[in-house]
């Protein structure tokens, strides 16, 4: 009887004792109060490098150009694209070109709605706006004058 009791107790202890008991030391510390977490910032402005631009009195086969400066403020790399512009006047077009340095329009076309290469933070980029009247423009459009808005879209880029 005693042996059965002892055997039963050992089995019970095996099942109970088979669970592992843990204990650990713990401690805590506070981060210094002047440590702050802030989000980055992102902003872009655009302006004519030479204001006001002169796109007046175009005659057939003539073109006039002006340079736009796009300036980034904030953190991280960025890139931009220029939206297509229309005049609504037959033969009168607005297109874009790249810029040599910061003051000279090149002959290289700049496609609208196409992202530029990544630019460094807090820098300026330049592109050239060209207004042109086709050589075959009809006499009936003489004196036409249209306002044009050129939209620049910018986005930030990861640092990786």
């Amino acid at each position: 009887m005693r042996l059965r009791l002892i055997a039963g107790l050992a089995v019970a202890l095996l099942f109970v004792g088979s669970a592992t008991a843990y204990a650990a030391w713990a401690d805590s510390a506070a981060v210094a109060s002047q440590t702050r977490l802030t989000a980055g910032s992102f902003g872009v402005t655009a302006a004519w490098a030479t204001a006001p631009p002169d796109f007046a009195a175009l005659y057939p086969g003539q073109s006039k150009s002006a340079i736009v400066r796009v300036t980034h403020s904030g953190d991280g790399r960025w890139q931009y694209q220029v939206g297509a512009a229309t005049t609504g006047v037959a033969g009168l077009t607005v297109s874009y070109r790249s810029v040599t340095g910061t003051t000279t329009c090149s002959a290289t076309p700049l496609a609208a709605a196409t992202w530029s290469a990544a630019q460094a933070a807090a820098t300026s980029a330049y592109f050239c706006v060209v207004a042109e009247l086709a050589p075959t423009a009809a006499s009936g459009i003489q004196g036409s004058s249209v306002p044009v808005t050129i939209t620049i879209t910018a986005q930030n880029q990861p640092t990786s």
Binding site: A46, A66, V148, T151
Partner: peptide
């Protein structure tokens, strides 16, 4: 995810006359 913003410049384009 990324931030996007837009800005613009304006001008007047005109045709000459005889």
């Amino acid at each position: 995810a990324w931030w996007t913003t837009t800005t613009s410049v304006a001008a007047t384009v005109s045709v000459g006359s005889v």
